[in-house]
């Protein structure tokens, strides 16, 4: 009785405190304050003639460049070429990373046989592969995709291995008590248990995929956002370089958000935890 009459009072005390808490927009507004005022300041400085803006073009010039690039459909071609390389490389690297990582996490003998080699290969800076890939696969798409796939593979492999090894033995026993074995145990216990970490590993992998597509395209491509960077450098067009960088940032963010969105329905149980706090 007394317990029940005390509880609502406690709850009442916390409610107003929450309502007066910081607005959810606060971090967005504060976070944007610095870059937006720098951009506006630079624009004003160049417009007013205080600065030349030749090496670092003001926002209006970059917007103009973006507009003229997209008008003729040229920008879309470059975006398409880059996206295609990242997509194929990511797919190959992610599938291979998940398969090898799951095998290494699940099977001790596989881990003992294969993991030292993979760790050894991982010690090689990925860009060191480029000459070999070009000799093996030529200078066109294949060698670029291979480099991206290598970049994606290692973080995915590491993340998946660690998450399989980290699955709580106590949870696995729940599956065993209900007589789950082999594939059923994998499907109903292991996969859902590792999913949050696999998503994290895929996002890290994708980030590296974007990093390596830039490297691959800078080293020689006839199209792609990386080509725009090199072209801008060789022809002295910093506005084109900055425009390409911005497009990289936006598309990289979008693809990352796509992974998050695709995994959200399966990770709702985690969100509820975050929401509860």
């Amino acid at each position: 009785m007394t317990v029940e009459t005390v509880l609502p009072g406690v709850r009442d005390n916390t409610k107003p405190a929450r309502a007066t808490g910081p607005s959810p927009w606060r971090p967005v507004v504060l976070g944007l304050l610095l870059p937006v005022s720098l951009a506006v300041g630079w624009e004003i400085a160049v417009q007013a003639g205080w600065a030349e803006g030749r090496l670092l073009p003001p926002p209006s010039r970059i917007a103009q460049t973006l507009w003229s690039l997209s008008e003729g459909g040229e920008l879309l071609v470059h975006i398409g070429a880059t996206l295609w390389r990242v997509a194929v490389g990511f797919l190959i690297g992610a599938v291979a990373g998940i398969a090898a990582g799951a095998a290494a996490g699940y099977s001790r003998i596989f881990r003992e046989l294969v993991d030292p080699t993979i760790q050894g290969l991982r010690a090689i800076p990925s860009l060191a592969w480029v000459p070999l890939f070009i000799l093996w696969l030529g200078i066109f798409e294949e060698s670029k995709v291979a480099l991206i796939a290598v970049g994606v593979f290692f973080p995915v492999y590491l993340g998946v291995t660690a998450s399989v090894l980290g699955v709580d033995r106590k949870i696995v026993e729940v599956g065993r008590i209900f007589r789950l074995k082999g594939f059923a145990l994998v499907r109903r216990i292991l996969v859902p248990a590792i999913l949050p970490n696999v998503v994290l590993a895929l996002r890290t992998g994708l980030g590296l995929g974007w990093m390596f597509v830039v490297a691959a395209e800078i080293m020689g491509a006839a199209e792609g956002l990386g080509y725009l960077l090199v072209d801008g450098q060789q022809l002295g067009k910093p506005d084109q370089i900055v425009a390409a960088i911005l497009v990289f940032a936006v598309i990289g963010k979008i693809t990352d958000a796509l992974i998050v969105a695709a995994s959200t329905p399966f990770l709702r149980w985690q969100d509820s935890y975050g929401a509860g706090n």
Binding site: K170, V174, P192, A193
Partner: peptide, 12 residues
């Protein structure tokens, strides 16, 4: 068998 801890599956 009921374990000492609930051992509920957090994703269900």
């Amino acid at each position: 068998l009921v374990f000492q801890e609930p051992r509920l599956l957090p994703w269900l």
